[in-house]
Amino acid sequence: MFTGIVQGLAEVISAEHRENFMQLTLALPPANCDQLQLGASIAVNGTCLTITHFEDNQVCFDLIAQTLSTTNLGQLQVGDRVNFERAARIGDEIGGHLLSGHVHDLAEVTRIERSPNNCTLWLKTAEKWRRYIFDKGFIALDGCSLTVKNCTDEGFCVGLIPETLSITRFGFITEGDLINLEIDSHTQAVVDSVERYLEHRSSN
């Protein structure tokens, strides 16, 4: 489980591709490497990955076909930087909202509006996910817990504060980039339950 509070940026050291498989190695900031363990989970651009090997501050992960087809991790190249968050522990402060690290889909950045102290990011999403996205609702983008600013017929937008821009990959995002999207599980459960109830009522 994760909180959506990105802890920083990790650098891609290697990305070895094989058929429907990739082995990814990241360099984490040394300050975030205490008590690393094999089998532990780290969210990379919001995707829950399992540590398969580590040495000093370099951490390795295996990515299978489902992960590569659903997320933006398959596009990574050496030198790229990614958002990371180590798994939450019991007693940790939940500063964002609870995330599973199971990415639902990719959202495309269609427009970026920047000013000295603000940044608005506009994204296009698939229709099947838009019914779960509401003004002022929670959304996770590349593992970052954010509040939806406005919804449109094709997607939504979020506002990014300077702190978010400084410690996450949103500081150097560009139009056309694909962002990992995880919708809020509680919102999804409520919407699905209401839709099933209404469908049941209309059929009786």
Rank of each mutant, 00 (worst) to 15 (best):
F134K: 09
R86K: 15
H97N: 11
A140Y: 07
E113K: 10
H97M: 06
K136D: 13
E108R: 13
G137H: 02
L98V: 12
K136W: 04
S115I: 07
L141R: 01
C144E: 14
E108L: 08
E85I: 10
S100I: 07
E93M: 10
N118I: 02
N83K: 05
V103H: 02
C119L: 12
F138H: 12
G143L: 11
F138V: 01
S145W: 12
G137D: 05
E85R: 08
L123C: 07
A87M: 09
G143T: 09
V103L: 08
K149Y: 15
T125D: 05
C119F: 05
N83P: 10
S115D: 13
L106T: 02
E93I: 12
L123V: 03
H102V: 12
G95F: 04
A140G: 12
T147G: 04
A87G: 12
K149F: 15
E93F: 04
G137I: 04
W129Q: 10
T147N: 02
C119D: 00
P116E: 11
V148R: 01
A88V: 15
N117W: 01
R89W: 07
H102Q: 11
A87P: 06
G96Q: 03
A88N: 07
T147D: 05
A140N: 04
D135T: 14
A140W: 00
I90Q: 14
G96I: 03
G96E: 05
F84Y: 15
G101R: 01
I94S: 04
S145D: 10
L121K: 00
G101M: 08
R131I: 14
F84K: 01
R114H: 10
T125Q: 12
S115P: 02
A107D: 08
V103G: 07
S145K: 12
D135M: 12
F84V: 10
R86Q: 14
G101V: 03
V148L: 02
T120G: 00
D92T: 03
H104D: 15
N83A: 10
D105V: 08
W129A: 03
I90R: 10
I112N: 06
C144D: 06
P116Y: 08
E108N: 06
T125R: 00
I133T: 03
S145N: 08
E93V: 10
K128L: 14
T120L: 12
I94G: 08
R131W: 09
F134S: 12
K136E: 14
K124C: 03
V109H: 00
R114K: 14
C119T: 14
N117Y: 09
E127A: 14
T147V: 02
D142K: 04
H104Q: 15
A88R: 06
R131G: 08
T125H: 04
N83M: 08
R89Y: 06
T125K: 01
G101K: 01
I112E: 10
V103K: 08
